[in-house]
Design a protein around this nucleic acid. Sequence first.
RNA 1: GCGGGUGUAGCCAAGUGGUUAAGGCAGUGGAUUGUGAUUCCACCAUUCGCGGGUUCAAUUCCCGUCAUCCGCCCCA
Length: 421
Amino acid sequence: MGAIQALRGTQDILPTEIGYWQQIEATARDIFAKAVYQEIRPPIIEQTELFERGIGEATDVVGKEMYTFRDRGDRSISLRPEMTAGVVRAFIQHSLGAGVHRLWYTGPVFRYERPGAGRQRQFYQVGVENIGTQDPRADVEVIALATQLLQDLGLKSLKLDLNSVGQGEDRQRYREALVSFLSPYKSELDKDSQDRLDRNPLRILDSKDKRTQEIVGDAPSLLEYLGDESRQHFDRVQQLLGDLSINYHLNPCLVRGLDYYTHTAFEIKAESLGNEATVCGGGRYDGLVAELGGKETPAVGWAIGMERLVLLLQQLGEEKPPKLDFYLVSRGDRATAQALVLAQKLRYFGFSVELDLSGAAFGKQFKRADRSNAMACLVIGDAEAENQTVNLKWMATQKQEAIAQSQLLTMTDTLKKQMKH
RNA sequence: GCGGGUGUAGCCAAGUGGUUAAGGCAGUGGAUUGUGAUUCCACCAUUCGCGGGUUCAAUUCCCGUCAUCCGCCCCA
């Protein structure tokens, strides 16, 4: 077969579904603007080292899912597998400095994985980062933005899972406790968990293997190992979420896949998406800025997977049909020329206008007008062209009147009212 | 990366080891050189994702490959 196809795991977003994307983008922009978050657009490619250092070489995302290649200067380059590392790199590079920085972004990210529904190799994220404060209010502000966005899109029955993964010393102590608890059971754990026992033991907590889950059920809880500072932070986050009436479920097994998280970790899930249930994931990452060479700077953020949101919106099935003011029906050389000019003028006055280019019989053109959901048709044939008039026909009532073309443009206010602009 | 299902027109689909590959929707032209429903007629896959094999004969059976979907893993 000669035709070239899109690469596996990449997708064309066609006009039939672009409405969902635009709806998400518009809603997000509006919410971010009101909370004074500013857009940032980091590049799609970065030095591979940025992700290795930022996200962690032991993570699946970096270890086996990254698109990495050498460029002509023999540098190791990677397509970004997520946006936070790039945003933080930009923050450091441009010395954005002290104080609180509220940022948001959207764009494609890349992970080399087996594609499926709601899971692509090139997929789109929208996310926020609140950089510069350790205040638990920042954690909650950010979570509130996510829940508001989902709510404004009409998505209900989403579940917010919350946990604290503590910080440095807490996690080190817990890690030791967990490893010594699990080691006697090593042979009973699933294979992946056995491998993780020394590499990344915390991730064993959210293994879906049944036997592993049973064992983990009796393991010491991360929450019991939180130091005073972590404990206080987490308590305050929960209290503030309560003040905002944001419902959440404590999930002590929630451990996120990227190394940089500290304190608050959360995910928002939709059960109707089955396996690919996580719509939004995020948390606090107080160590990342320093890890990437900046000053010690606390931060918190999240990312939403846009195609999963689109799937949820499609399940709601409430796409509005595009509205059209005028459908222009014309035939004959003089008439089609006049129709073209009239269409341009009406657009200048703010109307949406579709010009029928077929030159087919009027009957065919009206049929298309009907399907286009136009409020009204403007008809120019030989007779109208001769008199410089136009027939205005309202599709709903079938009422029709002849108007001078020049006059039509003087009654645009009246027309707009009838169009319910 | 592993296990499984699927692949016939723009879309939804029936079908069979035997030579013309149903049907529906959409589209185009016409009945109706100038008015939307309905109707009627015609056209719309030299070919069944792609490549190879078995066979006198393959869309059908076999192998490979690509794509897609489900599960595992992981995440958004």
